[in-house]
Write a protein that binds this DNA or RNA. Structure first.
Lengths: 155, 155
DNA sequence: AGAGTCGCTGTACACATTGCCCAGTGATTG
DNA sequence: CAATCACTGGGCAATGTGTACAGCGACTCT
């Protein structure tokens, strides 16, 4: 859980040049190879690094439209709705939240027209009372964690 | 842009066991190493695979609270707001959207109390008229792309 | 039909990297 | 003071990588 300064530098380096190896990383950071290896192992067993999965771009896959849908759920239907949404490939992410809606999910679609189909599929389920959708136009800040890592490392 | 069936299998394999090498992947998929190498290169130049950055868990970094904030922006202040939000480490992601709000951003914080500080910092800016926040309680479907990849590959 | 192109295979080779081990050292702790 | 811990720097065998090449079947264009 201790987010060291070296850990921070390592994470940043890995984020910038992911194909880098342990040896090369140790050279860049000016430490011994064993150290980098140990840090990496620790970060992974800590859960700080979940993995190194490929970062897939839905747009390049033919799904250039992203939207967020706020869902209102019928009492007690939560689990069914979760299962239903988990079965829809275009649902990239699902959260249960406080506030006006009960759930928030991230959707993608092949086009604005296709989004209609996706939404119909998403909300065409008994437990869902109401849905409101916001289509994403721009993504000025794509998902990033480095600034947070830096802050966590810098204290 | 052609999302082949082999491409799909490769992506799925990489997602499940990211530390796998090209050689091992070729063995698993039952194709020649050169093929896997060529596919990988193509997927990367296509932009389907953006990279292999480490998947960092904010919770493990000490930021277990996630929230989504919908922001309403003063006309013409878009760029300033974008720049402001980009400067806040706790802002993990920012989208401009259609619908009730003008922007949607994903935030993290060290605690519910800390979230107040983050929100204050986020909305403490001239161009922002109104903000409504939804705190994430559960994350039944964490960000996933494999089902989408499978669908894209299966046609 | 023939020529050219393309993607995949199977193989080869030199080189770099990995996983693992170990002795030594400096800082911190009880 | 002794023990613990993280880091260093070195060494080793095994493996993977980058790269190249020839052969082959499928496809397209003329």
């Amino acid at each position: 859980m201790a987010i060291d300064h070296l850990d921070g530098a390592l994470l940043e380096l890995l984020a910038r040049e992911p194909r880098i190896g342990v040896l090369e990383a140790s050279r860049r950071l000016g430490v011994a190879r064993g150290t980098v290896q140990a840090r990496l192992d620790r970060l992974q067993s800590n859960g700080v690094i979940r993995g190194f999965g490929p970062d897939v771009d839905p747009a390049a896959l033919g799904y250039p439209v992203t939207a967020f849908a706020t869902l209102e759920i019928k009492q007690g239907q939560g689990n069914d709705v979760r299962a239903h949404l988990a079965g829809v490939p275009e649902v990239l992410e699902l959260h249960t939240t406080t506030g006006h809606g009960d759930m928030l999910c991230r959707l993608v679609a092949r086009s604005n027209a296709d989004l209609q189909r996706v939404i119909d599929r998403v909300v065409g389920f008994d437990g869902i009372v109401r849905a409101s959708t916001a289509i994403v136009m721009e993504n000025p800040v794509p998902l990033r964690l480095i600034p947070l890592v830096k802050q966590a490392a810098g204290d």
